[in-house]
Amino acid sequence: MGQSFAVGYLLFLGKGALWTAGLSSIALLCGGILALVVALCRISPQKWVRLVMALYIQLIQGTPVLVLMFLMYFGLPSLGWSVSPLLAASVSLSLYVSAYLGESWRAAIQAVPRAQWEAAECLALSRTQRMTKVILPQAVRIATPPTVGFMVQIIKNTSLASVVGFIELVRAGQIVNNTIFQPFLIYLLIAMLYFSMCYPLSIFSRKLEAKAGEKSYA
């Protein structure tokens, strides 16, 4: 064995990479929706809502993503639900994203200058209107650079889905390796593929942060 790479293997890896992108998108979307809930709860006027959410965040942030995945994939079936690798990975990653982005977005909302809140109040807008029309649009601008940066973390963490059998890039590579037995080479190739996905995002995130640093928020 140990023959040179056939195009078929590369295509298989490419398919895995597409699934990596797909899983990342699912995690970002679902996790993002949850993150919004988390962020809004964290700034709720009701103390118990804030505390419960804070507890949730501490629990998720204090648990390794891998353990979350095992919990979903192995743990849930033992309670009677059937769980596919994709579902287990999606749920775990969404929870992970919701905790980290939730905190990040909360910080962004709180970074909107006090004066804006007060101005909106003086215009007699309701709380919902204040949030949607004045605060959130500005919070989005503040939150964009760190969120783009966090997307890199999401992509890297999808690699853990391979452990529960989901065929993303790493799993695809491991399957190819079962035929050609060149693990170092394959993982090198996998690393380069991840790099080509993550590096542009990292650069872009840094550009956004530099631009945000130049602007002054009145």
Binding site: K156, V170, F184, A191, Y194, C198
Partner: peptide
């Protein structure tokens, strides 16, 4: 290189 690749892949490498 390290910051743009997953730890899982690094460990295997």
């Amino acid at each position: 290189a390290i910051r743009n690749t997953p730890l899982l892949v690094q460990i295997f490498l």
